[in-house]
Design a protein around this nucleic acid. Structure first.
Lengths: 201, 201, 201, 201
DNA sequence: CATGAATGAGGATTCATTCAT
DNA sequence: AATGAATGAATCCTCATTCAT
């Protein structure tokens, strides 16, 4: 029993080391040797836990995936039934942001890793697909219930997930909106809901 | 004089070979050896023209950069002065798409390369920044002229560029919208302009 | 614990291989590949122990340096206090020669490597400087004690170390004096002590 | 005829460039590419004049060889017949030094190149051999004429050439004796002639 | 379970050399 | 005679992977 704990601890060390190296050199630029050196473990030890750097990336993304998935499924349920629709959306978005905040390093890893070469892409599509599916479900419900215009909900989900991703990048990668991220979220929602064009009288 | 032509030709061969390998293995996965093998030139010849794969990427992106920049600056001028604002936007977006279409392979390279590790990011930011700057100028003019709501034009530019990028990815990377890309563009514009929420009566 | 021994053994193999290649091709002409081939180890193994051929040279010279230094400091102490000065000098010189004899290959390496390009020179100056310093100390003591003429002891140390080096080269590099090296040493001392000019009567 | 002059000029450019690169990187460390780059000529041009870096070294040493040889043969003739023997030696040594002074760069090249690996050694032995032969001839004449003690003139020539070489190195390589080289020469001669030991009364 | 020395395949880079212009 | 683009062998160096301890 104690040996298992020890093993788990070593695995954790490798993940931590990998996270640090990824942040510094980027995923594509890190070798097993890099992770081993950072972890201060022996070269052979790495292979007892992972077979490749890719697997480490996978394990890291796995962790955040579960969190995000839970949040989204939990929250989307209530959102559209709520009387104050925008308010519900705003709450959803903000709590999503807090999840990202908690996994800051991993989300950055996700952002810099998404859409790169095919092999890695396979490990990250879930993020976009999950986001897009959630948005789409909400939109479809909104359309069905007569609250939203009859737009192509798939296209709409692309626009929103893309916009969200860009704002996320600006926030986590480039340090913008460190303070007023929450108020910006409300503005985003307002734009998607009501558009930017002024009505002519 | 003919020798210079020959050199230029060799350079072109390397760029073509690189484009092909990038498309197959992704940027991060391609070695100088790969490019050399594909180009069927000698190993040493590569170093006569480039120092690293990164420089090849750079040269490739350079080409498209000039095209895109010219298009955007040319077109943005007219757009907002036009009487039919949406129509002007639609035209702009569509001609931009045709530029992307012409540089299909390079745009894919750009999409899969953007936002990856810092070193490469530096070579691709211009794309997002150019796009965002263009959008922002248009929005600011729209706001000043009283046609658009007073939203944060920077935030708005993030949303639009992000949305556009995602749609581009879906189109060029995943083969969606091969036929009706043009009609989708009009729908996108409509969403950003008027929002998705139905007015309550 | 046995693993460390194994490592030390491998290191020794590399040093031996290097010594052999140096002797055959000369330092400047030997590549890492040469040493690896001679040692029959894997290419990567070399880098586990050294970073460059230069470092190997260094390690080789280090060994002899310690021996020579010990001899010189041990012996110089007694020499000048001795009643029979020439005899003491002769003993010192001869035991120094025996050190050189024992490290034959490395001394040859030293002789062919000294005074070459700056980078290597830095690793070999100690030899000349050590020799010259020792000689100088002895001379200064001889002058102070009134046994030697008041010549510039630095200049004198240059002459003696240079002469010694040349004789060494003739002996170890070109195979001269294989038998009567000892009697030659006495003649050298005699020359430095009493000069070559006959007194006029 | 003019073409020959042009060719000679190009050859000179290569020699000059080589001299500069040798001084900076040392002989062993310079490639044809280095010399070509420094000379600002085309790669192919090098091969019209030389086949290897070694040949360039050779050409460079050739120049100084002729000068030195002439000096030595001219001067040794008179020296020993002179009434004031030491004075004659002193003159000889000093004019030799002035030859070295004029070929400063090449002599440094010679000093850093002598006694290195076999292939190069072959090109530089003439220097030591010439020096030693000259010294030996003088000594032998001195012995025959009853002016010098009956030492082994070969051994003596090794001592003197070695000492001279060391002093040369100190002077040209390490910048010692920049001013008083001439007075040091007289001291050297005095040492070799009369020794350093004080006569007991 | 953890260690780290050794391996050798493979990619990066340099260099002498050729040859068409 | 001079040029410089192209060549490919040779070297340098890193990396994932194995295995005895």
């Amino acid at each position: 029993m104690r040996q298992e704990k020890r093993k788990e601890l070593t695995r954790e060390k490798i993940l931590e080391a990998a996270k640090a190296v990824f942040a510094q050199k980027g995923y594509a630029g890190t070798s097993i040797a890099d992770v081993v050196k950072k972890s201060k473990l022996a070269r052979g030890t790495f292979y007892l836990h992972f077979q490749s750097v890719e697997q480490v990336l996978n394990a890291l993304l796995q962790e955040i995936f579960i969190d995000i998935q839970r949040y989204l499924t939990d929250l989307q349920v209530e959102a559209l039934d709520h009387k104050n629709f925008k308010r519900a959306l705003s709450d959803l978005a903000k709590s999503l942001l807090s999840v990202f905040q908690n996994h800051r390093e991993t989300v950055i890893l996700l952002l810099t890793t998404m859409n790169s070469e095919p092999k890695i892409r396979a490990q990250t599509v879930w993020f976009q697909e999950l986001l897009q599916a959630t948005i789409r479900v909400m939109l479809d419900r909104g359309i069905t219930s007569g609250r939203l215009k009859k737009h192509d909900s798939e296209l709409m989900s692309f626009l929103v997930s893309g916009g969200l991703r860009e704002v996320l990048s600006q926030w986590l990668l480039f340090g913008r909106y460190n303070r007023d991220i929450e108020s910006k979220v409300d503005e985003m929602i307002s734009i998607y809901m009501n558009g930017v064009e002024l009505e002519e009288k």
